[in-house]
C-alpha cells in the first residue's frame, strides 16, 4: 500500500518574474516500510520534492497524498498539525533546539501531541538508547558532536511514531564513521519498527544502503530502481 503518492507534481518558482521550473510532473508512489533514496545532481529538484512531500511547500500543479489524504489543499495550520502527527524530519544541519537537552529535543513533538510526561520520558529514553546516546540524555546540542546531534535528530523524528521520515541530505555534514553509524541505526529502525524512510542525498554510502533509488534529472523522475 502506498504511503506517499505524488501525481503530476510541478513546482515553478518566481512564476511572475523569471519562472524557474524545479519539478516538471513527478509521479511517484512510496510504499510503507521502504528505505528510499532520492538522488540526482544539484538543481534536479530533490529538496523541492521532499519539501512538497513533507507539506513544507505546495506544488504549483498536481497533488500529494499521504495515507490517502491530499495534503496539497490543506490550510497552513492543518498542515502543521499533519506534519506533527505523520511526518518526521531529519535535516542536513541537524536543527535541534539549542536550548533543550537531547531528551527534551526528542520529547518536543510528543509534548505538542499532548502525550503524558511519563510516556514522553520513556519513549525519549528508549529512542536515545536505540541511537546509542543513553549516556547523553542531559546534554545540549552544543555539547554533542555532529554525528551525535544527527542521531538525536533521528530519535526526535521517530518519537511521535510518524507515518514516514523525510531526511534531507542527513549525512552531508558527517564524517565516514558517523555516517556509517547513522545509516546502521536508520536501517535497523526501518527493519525493526517498520518506519518508512525517504532520503534526498548525494552520498554514495547512503545510496548503497537504499533499497530503492529514485533518480531525478531536471525536475523529472529519470530512473526508479528497486533492489
Amino acid at each position: 500500500m502506498a504511503v506517499i503518492t505524488t501525481k503530476g507534481v510541478e513546482k515553478v518558482y518566481n512564476p511572475d518574474k523569471i519562472p524557474v521550473k524545479a519539478l516538471k510532473g513527478v509521479d511517484l508512489e512510496i510504499e510503507a516500510g521502504e528505505f528510499t533514496a532520492i538522488v540526482g545532481p544539484s538543481g534536479s529538484g530533490k529538496t523541492t520534492l521532499l519539501n512538497i512531500i513533507g507539506g513544507l511547500d505546495r506544488p504549483t500543479a498536481g497533488y500529494v497524498e499521504v495515507g490517502g489524504e491530499d495534503i496539497s489543499q490543506m490550510s497552513d495550520n492543518a498542515l502543521i498539525d499533519f506534519r506533527k502527527e505523520h511526518i518526521g524530519f531529519v535535516f542536513q544541519a541537524y536543527n535541534l533546539i539549542p536550548v533543550l537537552t537531547a531528551r527534551e529535543n526528542v520529547e518536543f513533538v510528543m509534548l505538542l501531541q499532548n502525550r503524558s510526561k511519563a510516556e514522553r520520558h520513556a519513549r525519549a529514553d528508549e529512542l536515545l538508547k536505540a541511537v546509542g546516546l543513553e549516556d547523553k540524555v542531559h546534554k545540549r546540542p552544543a555539547e554533542l558532536s555532529g554525528g551525535q546531534q544527527q542521531r538525536v535528530a533521528v530519535a526526535r523524528a521517530l518519537a511521535p511514531k510518524p507515518t514516514f521520515i523525510l531526511a534531507d541530505e542527513p549525512t552531508a555534514n558527517l564524517d565516514s564513521e558517523s555516517t556509517a553509524n547513522l545509516l546502521d541505526i536508520m536501517a535497523r529502525l526501518n527493519q525493526e519498527e517498520g518506519v518508512t524512510f525517504v532520503f534526498s542525498t548525494h552520498d554514495q554510502r547512503v545510496i548503497d544502503r537504499a533499497r530503492r533509488v529514485v533518480t531525478l534529472v531536471d525536475g523529472k523522475v529519470d530512473e526508479d530502481l528497486r533492489r
Partner: peptide, 16 residues
C-alpha cells in the same frame, strides 16, 4: 529565523 522555520516544520503552531 532558521530555528523558527525548523520549529514550524516539526509541528509547532505559529501561535505557540
Amino acid at each position: 529565523e532558521y530555528e523558527f522555520g525548523v520549529l514550524i516544520s516539526i509541528g509547532l503552531q505559529r501561535w505557540q
